[in-house]
C-alpha cells in the first residue's frame, strides 16, 4: 500500500442468509481511499453502500476479503482492539444523529475524548472549538432535544471530528435534513476536509452530497459499478 493510501478493501464479500439462499450484500468489492479524499458512495437503497461503510467502520465483518486501514490489517484485530481502533482512528456521523440524549452538545462532543482518557478542561476546550467550527457557538449547553435536526447533525459532525480521526464515515448524513440544511452540512464537511485534511467517506444517494464530493463511487447490487473523480 502506497504512503498516500489510507484504506484498501480487497475482494470483500458479505452474505445475508434469507431462507435457503444467501444474498450477497457485497459481492467481491475492491475499494481504495487516499488520505484527504472526500468520497461519496452512492446508489439506491440495498445497493450495499451502508454495508461497505459498516465494514470499513469495523462495525461489521466481511465473510471474505481483506481490509487495511492506515497500514493495519484490521480484520485480524480482536473485538476489543477494534473498539479501540474506532476510538483512536475513526469518526462517525449517523443518519439519525444518534447523540446521547442525557448529555449536552458540549458533553456529546467531549465524550469520545473522555473515552480516550483526556483531561476534563482539555476535552471541553476542544469540544467548544469544534462546536464553534460547525457554527454552534453559544449552544454548547443545550441537550439534543433542545436542538433542531440540522443542529444535532452538526453536533454529530463536531463529535466525529473532535478526536482528529484519520477517517470520517458518514451514513446518509443529509437524509433527515431539508435541502437547505443538507447543503449547508455538506459544505461544512467539505470545508473541514479541505482545511483540516481529514478523509471523508460518505454513503448517500442525496444529489446534494454527490455534488459536494471530490470522488463519487456508484454501487449497485453489492458491486461498485463506477468511480468518477468530480
Amino acid at each position: 500500500m502506497s504512503d498516500d493510501m489510507l484504506l484498501q478493501a480487497t475482494d470483500v464479500c458479505k452474505y445475508y442468509h434469507s431462507g435457503d439462499s444467501d444474498m450477497a450484500a457485497l459481492d467481491h468489492v475492491d475499494f481504495q481511499l487516499k488520505k484527504g479524499d472526500f468520497t461519496v458512495l452512492s446508489g439506491r437503497s440495498g445497493s450495499g453502500k451502508t454495508t461497505l461503510l459498516n465494514m470499513i467502520g469495523l462495525l461489521d465483518t466481511p465473510d471474505v476479503g481483506s481490509l487495511d486501514i492506515a497500514g493495519e490489517d484490521v480484520l485480524a484485530l480482536s473485538a476489543a482492539k477494534r473498539a479501540d481502533f474506532r476510538l483512536q482512528r475513526i469518526g462517525f456521523v449517523f443518519q439519525a444523529y444518534n447523540l446521547i440524549r442525557v448529555l449536552s452538545a458540549r458533553e456529546n462532543v467531549a465524550y469520545v475524548l473522555q473515552l480516550r482518557g483526556m483531561a476534563k478542561k482539555e476535552r471541553l476546550d476542544i469540544a467548544d472549538h469544534w462546536l464553534s467550527e460547525v457554527g454552534l457557538k453559544g449552544l454548547e449547553h443545550r441537550r439534543p432535544d433542545q436542538l433542531s435536526g440540522g443542529q444535532q447533525q452538526r453536533v454529530a459532525v463536531a463529535r466525529a471530528l473532535a478526536s482528529q480521526p484519520v477517517l470520517v464515515l458518514a451514513d446518509e448524513p443529509t437524509a433527515n435534513l431539508d435541502s437547505q440544511h443538507g447543503e449547508s452540512l455538506m459544505n461544512l464537511m467539505r470545508d473541514l476536509n479541505e482545511r483540516c485534511g481529514m478523509t471523508f467517506l460518505i454513503a448517500s444517494h442525496d444529489p446534494v452530497a454527490m455534488a459536494a464530493a471530490k470522488q463519487c463511487v456508484h454501487m449497485e447490487d453489492g458491486n461498485i459499478v463506477s468511480s468518477d473523480i468530480v
Binding site: G57, L59, A83, R86, N98, I100, Y111, V112, L115, R116
Partner: peptide, 16 residues
C-alpha cells in the same frame, strides 16, 4: 439499545 450501539461505534468498550 440504539444509544449503546452508537457508544460502541464511537469506541466505547463493552466493559464500560
Amino acid at each position: 439499545v440504539r444509544e449503546f450501539g452508537v457508544m460502541m461505534a464511537l469506541g466505547c468498550s463493552r466493559r464500560v
